[in-house]
Each structure stands twice: as C-alpha cells, then as structure tokens.
C-alpha cells in the first residue's frame, strides 16, 4: 500500500484483490516532477491546440452503477441487505453477534438464512466472532481505505453463496463520515450510536444520519452511569432526518432487542424471482 496517498490493496478473506483504482500506477512514489514537453517547444501549435469539453458526469457514477446492480441482485433474491454504520466502539459487532444468536435460537435462521460481510481496515477478528455463531461471514480488509464501496460488496456477495430470502448484514468500517457517500446497494441503512458517545452525534455527522433508515441507540444498560439524553439524541437526529426510526437497545442485557427483531421482520422483502439462483 502507498503511504503517501493511502491507496492500497483491498483484501477479501485473506486474498489480495487488486483495486480498480490502481490505474494511476503509483508513479507518485517518484517525487521528481516530469512535465511532458517533448512534443514540442512551449507555445508551439501542438501545445496550443487545446479544446474545452462539456463532461457533466457524476463523480460517484461508477460506485452508484455497481450499487444499483447489487440492489437489483438483492431484490431479485429477496435478500434483506443492511448496511450497518457507526463510529468505532459503538458495539456493532457485539450487537450483531447477539442478534444472530437470538434469531437462530428463535428458529428464524431456518427460513431466513443469515450471512455477514465484515468491513475493517485490518484483521479478520470480527468475521471470526461472527463465524463462531455458526453463520457464514466474509471479511473485507480495506487496507488504508476508510469505507466499503459497492464493488467490494459485489465481490464479497459473489463469493458467498447467498441463499434466497436471506438476511445480509454488511458491517461497514467504523467511521461516521466516509461511508455515508458510498451506496452499497443495501436495502436499508442502519446507524448505531451508543450512549457512551455524545448525544449530539447526529448534528456533528449529519450526512450519515440523514441517509439512515433506522438508528439503534446501543448500550442503554449504561444510561444510569452516563449523561446521555436519549430523547434529545432522537430529536437532534430527526432535525437531520424527520422520518428516522429510533430504537434504544442493549446488546448486553437484551433490552429493546425485540423491537429491533420486529423491524427486521417487517422490512424483509418477498422474493421477486422464484428461480433466481445464488451465484
């Protein structure tokens, strides 16, 4: 990986996947600065033959195209794909482990198989925690990258034989800024904030809360010990996103989790193509 610009390799489950973005070739490691004057002297006819072109292209178009394809793919298979977003340390993975364990105990996993894509800069520790529950998990290491993008999810989803009607949890890199811009093709965005953080996070990171469909307020078992006003947090989040649904939960004690599981059941789409096969 490049320590100057930060671009690097993205690895999926231990394998190195070259990033499309390496087309700039890493020539920036050479800090001498070449200008290409060999085509003629400065001011020659060749140098002056410039033209202006209207381009009008969305900078995120590649990502949005891949996200659109992912969304069609998930929808056709009745997959509920959830992009889980939060700051580091909000308890996302613990919440996920508890959710999977509870849903499997309730017998839901039999008709709604669960699969997880884990995104972190380094290590497959989180994927290992998920696999310990018995569900398949694939780890994407973004290297220096600060977010998952749609193409990473395409590659990960392709390597997981996703069953019809399954629930796919995509745990994004812990970061409330960068992942907001990158549509993964998810069915819904779920942002997790914990009561050990500031209740004004929704105003400090408005893009993230604006784009979310559900906010889980985690670690509510700690409320007696911290100065966190749940109602104020919800009110601030709704100034950014008036239709945001908010559920207080504790992954440790289980408080509020039934409402979260109810939300999952209510948002599960019906498969649209009966014969779509996993790829």
């Amino acid at each position: 990986m490049c320590g100057i610009c930060g671009c690097g390799s993205t690895t999926i489950a231990g394998g190195i996947v070259p990033r499309d973005s390496q087309s700039h070739g890493h020539d920036h490691h050479h800090h001498d600065h070449h200008h290409h004057h060999e085509s003629g002297a400065v001011g020659s006819a060749a140098e002056d033959a410039t033209r202006r072109l209207r381009v009008e292209r969305d900078i995120l178009e590649d990502n949005n195209r891949a996200a659109g394809a992912n969304r069609v793919w998930f929808t056709e298979r009745g997959v509920l794909a959830l992009n889980l977003l939060s700051a580091p340390g909000s308890g996302k993975t613990t919440l996920l482990v508890r959710t999977i364990t509870d849903l499997m105990t309730a017998g839901t996993a039999a008709d709604r198989p669960i699969t997880v894509i884990e995104g972190d800069q380094q290590t497959d520790l989180d994927a290992a925690r998920i696999r310990a529950t018995g569900v398949p998990a694939i780890q994407i290491n973004t290297g220096k990258g600060c977010h998952l993008d749609a193409a990473m999810v395409t590659r990960a989803a392709t390597s997981l034989a996703l069953a019809q009607g399954s629930v796919l949890f995509i745990e994004n890199v812990g970061n409330l800024v960068c992942p907001a811009a990158f549509d993964l093709g998810e069915t819904h965005r779920v942002v997790v904030v914990s009561v050990t953080e500031g209740e004004d996070k929704p105003l400090k990171y408005p893009d993230m809360f604006h784009s979310a469909d559900l906010m889980l307020i985690n670690k509510v078992d700690l409320l007696p010990h911290v100065a966190f006003d749940v109602e104020r947090c919800v009110a601030l989040a709704r100034t950014v996103n008036p239709s945001l649904v908010a559920l207080p939960v504790s992954a440790t004690t289980g408080e509020g989790l039934d409402a979260w599981y109810g939300w999952l059941r209510a948002h599960h789409p019906a498969p649209r193509l009966a014969h779509a096969k996993p790829i």
Binding site: C7, S21, I59, E61, H147, D149, F182
Partner: peptide, 18 residues
C-alpha cells in the same frame, strides 16, 4: 479520507473520456 476515493473516481472518468 474518502476524498482520495472520490479523486480516483475523477481520474477514472477523465481516462474514459480520453
């Protein structure tokens, strides 16, 4: 810093336009 990824997207657009 997601601006790095955005800038790489900009260069890709320039290359396809070229």
């Amino acid at each position: 810093m997601h601006e790095l990824a955005l800038t790489e997207s900009i260069l890709r657009i320039v290359e396809t336009e070229a």
